[in-house]
């Protein structure tokens, strides 16, 4: 019970912070905020319909139907092995590289079927940050930041410099690295590496940013920095974040989806999921009775 109360407190505080810091995004949404997700609206950039992923015939997630709103952060929570990452990785076609994976159902990006689009184009529009920081080990900080641009054939030095500075600023790393851009990326600390990876993802200007437990390998200070960053970023990007940490979901997200055993149990506004869950399983999970 104690833990539940704490959660609500955290959530409410964060929520009030949210609304005060990002009023334009709030007013931009016309839809009544009831937590209902059935009717697609203009603000829904990415929708998922009856999505299923199976590995070698074993179903990992099934019947997932939900949507991700423009300019909002959606958190996907749930116990280990419930398919959070599997869902996330389906969104930018990451399962393509696993031969045994089979994805069914539909994913619509601005009404276009992601499954039928060119995978490279999808990934250009939907960026991703991974659980463990994974900067390219042979490259310098600068080269990592602009790697996506270089991979897409951009070589103009002045443009690369501009984008590197911009994205490192956005990921709140610029001040720490501006004098050592030529140094190897591996010389950075874990938290800095993760912010570099975020900068790298932002540099190619994705419309949607997927984050797969981006702070699970980091200490509380680095975590706080990255959460702050998510707050900044969600004014201009659609963010989907998978997290094990319910407090984190409560702190950074506007919407929350709770998954259990490969299925979507409940989705809605973060505030209502945490204060007034409609399903018993959700309540049990967020109150710490299992998971």
């Amino acid at each position: 019970m104690q833990r539940h109360d704490d959660l609500i407190m955290t959530e409410e505080q964060t929520h009030s912070d949210n609304t005060s810091s990002t009023p334009p995004a709030e007013t931009g949404v016309k839809k009544s905020d009831t937590g209902q997700h059935d009717a697609p609206t203009k603000s829904e950039r990415l929708t998922v319909g009856n999505l299923g992923v199976a590995f070698s015939g074993n179903s990992a997630i099934r019947n997932i139907t939900m949507s991700f709103r423009d300019g909002k952060a959606t958190a996907i929570i749930g116990p280990s092995g419930c398919g959070k990452s599997t869902l996330l990785r389906a969104l930018n076609r990451m399962h393509d590289i696993i031969p045994t994976a089979k994805v069914t159902g539909e994913i619509l990006l601005d009404g276009e079927n992601v499954m039928q689009m060119d995978a490279v184009t999808v990934r250009r529009r939907i960026g991703m940050v991974f659980q463990k920081p994974n900067p390219f080990p042979t490259m310098s900080i600068f080269d990592n930041a602009v790697a996506g641009l270089r991979f897409n054939g951009i070589t103009k030095r002045s443009l690369l410099k501009e984008v590197a500075e911009e994205s490192l600023m956005k990921s709140a790393l610029w001040d720490e690295v501006k004098d050592r851009l030529k140094q190897p990326a591996m010389s950075l600390s874990g938290g800095q590496q993760q912010r570099l990876c975020i900068a790298r993802a932002l540099a190619v200007e994705p419309e949607i940013l997927l984050m797969d437990e981006p702070t699970s390998a980091l200490d509380p200070i680095a975590t706080a920095k990255i959460e702050e960053l998510i707050h900044e970023l969600k004014t201009s990007y659609t963010i989907v974040i998978v997290t094990h940490n319910m407090q984190q979901a409560a702190r950074v997200s506007d919407y929350t989806a709770f998954m259990y055993m490969g299925e979507l149990v409940e989705t809605g506004k973060t505030r209502s999921i945490f204060t007034n869950p409609t399903k018993k399983q959700t309540e049990d999970y967020i109150t710490g009775r299992f998971g």
């Binding site: 930018n92 590289i97 184009t121 990934r123 250009r124 991703m128 390219f136 996506g148």
Partner: peptide, 21 residues
């Protein structure tokens, strides 16, 4: 590590670029 390939692909790079670069 597989995560490096994923990082490259997630940036919208085609596979041959990820492989070489």
């Amino acid at each position: 590590p597989q995560t490096l390939r994923e990082a490259g692909l997630a940036l919208g790079a085609p596979k041959w670029i990820v492989t070489t670069r």
